[in-house]
Write a protein that binds this DNA or RNA. Structure first.
Lengths: 225, 225
DNA sequence: AACAAAACCATAAATATTTTATGGTTTTTT
DNA sequence: AAAAAACCATAAAATATTTATGGTTTTGTT
């Protein structure tokens, strides 16, 4: 049994009201004698700075990361996912929890593989009870996933078809509207190969001779998108 | 909003005390005006019969299946997983929940793919509260997984390596002690191929030049076993 | 409706990958 | 110490994938 101590949490979200909400709810909560202290950050840079800074003093116990963060005007697109990856590197003992507006499979799958967070909450499902349950679960016996995240995860797990990276890229690009003939610029395959693979995937999905829209729909149904 | 009605549940487990426990706890529970009626079965055959029979009258809302069932003396090995597969066929509207003593990854992965159950509970985690929560969740917004099941699922999801069926078979047979040279009898590959694949997998796992024990350990670590 | 663009399809040659047979060395087991 | 199994390497054979090419069909735009 560990000593009761103050649990330090950092929430990063560009909507200040959101992080404030977390702060009010959680600083008013305690379990097993622990109390909670929350810091907040509004941007990727600020969040990164606080994380790096904390490592040399007292690392955060938990990080609550929004996935979409306002990107600094010029630099590359920086997401909460990237921040999670950085956090894993510099502060490996810190539990990472994503707070996402989305419950789409592609994003959840991606984050589960790149960061493997201790928690994933879909924002529409966050309330006092779930927030507190999340903190407790993540501190004692992770993971914590909200119901919609679970539903996406279940879909993925139920899937016996495994597509390789190229296939997944093709599906992803289709889903964001990239034209097939333009995919050669993003994927290192020739056009006929991409066409072939699309046909193969359709066949695997049992939707031979149907068009791309059907492919996207089926990929979504099967948890790839 | 659906009319409150009696929720019909069938529990199949060869330990009668277990199903009785479920029955006492759940028939004493109600939510949203629903009451619960439980049937129980002690064997695969009995369970199968009750399921098939129910379809022509009132199908069960929920099936609670133990994974290990006493096999009838002569026939092939019949598991709760097989019963789940049958149930999916004959009674597709019925929610299936597995109650397993094990939380090993291989079994959970397998069941998630063959049956894709609405729930998975590790027996050591079952109590009044979780049982009731399971029923409610499964009826309203599946899935319901207990914490240990979730931990196995998380491991699997975090894994970016995808092995094909042959690779998985090799790992499985290794884990149950099949000798490499005997695997040719179970997997349609030549001995050098199996050796090759073992080497490849070790390489993927980052454990080149190590022995089978290390391979098994790593496969377990990564959620394949 | 007519045109252009993109998607879709089929074939065969070129490449790449995987499997297998073979013959050996090393490690483990008894 | 002997036997069994695991492990390794090589090259030929078998498979699978990619690609170039040239076409047809569908979709979208005007």
């Amino acid at each position: 049994m560990q000593e009761p101590e103050t649990i330090r949490i950092l929430a990063v979200d560009d909507h200040e009201m959101t992080t404030l909400g977390y702060k009010f709810i959680l600083e008013d909560y305690s379990f097993d004698g622990h109390t909670i202290h929350m810091d907040t950050a509004k941007t990727f840079a600020e969040g990164e700075h606080l994380i790096r800074d904390s490592v040399r003093k007292l690392p955060y116990h938990i990080l609550l990361l929004d996935i979409q963060l306002s990107n600094s005007r010029n630099g590359p697109v920086e997401t909460g996912e990237d921040l999670g990856i950085i956090a894993r590197e510099v502060s490996p003992g810190t539990r990472v929890v994503f707070m996402s507006s989305f419950s789409d499979n592609y994003r959840i799958n991606s984050i589960m593989q790149t960061v493997d967070p201790e928690g994933y909450m879909v924002k529409s499902e966050i309330d006092e009870g779930s927030l507190r349950a999340m903190v407790k679960t993540v501190m004692t016996q992770p993971p914590y996933y909200t119901q919609k995240a679970l539903m996406a995860i279940r879909k993925k797990m139920a899937n016996r078809i495994n597509l390789d990276e190229n296939d997944k890229q093709i599906l992803y690009h289709l889903s964001i509207g990239t034209k097939t003939k333009d995919m050669v610029n993003h994927i290192s395959l020739s056009l006929p190969s991409i066409e072939n693979r699309k046909r193969q995937i359709k066949s695997l999905f049992g939707i031979e001779k149907q068009n791309d829209q059907a492919l996207i729909a089926e990929a979504r149904e099967r948890g790839f998108l």
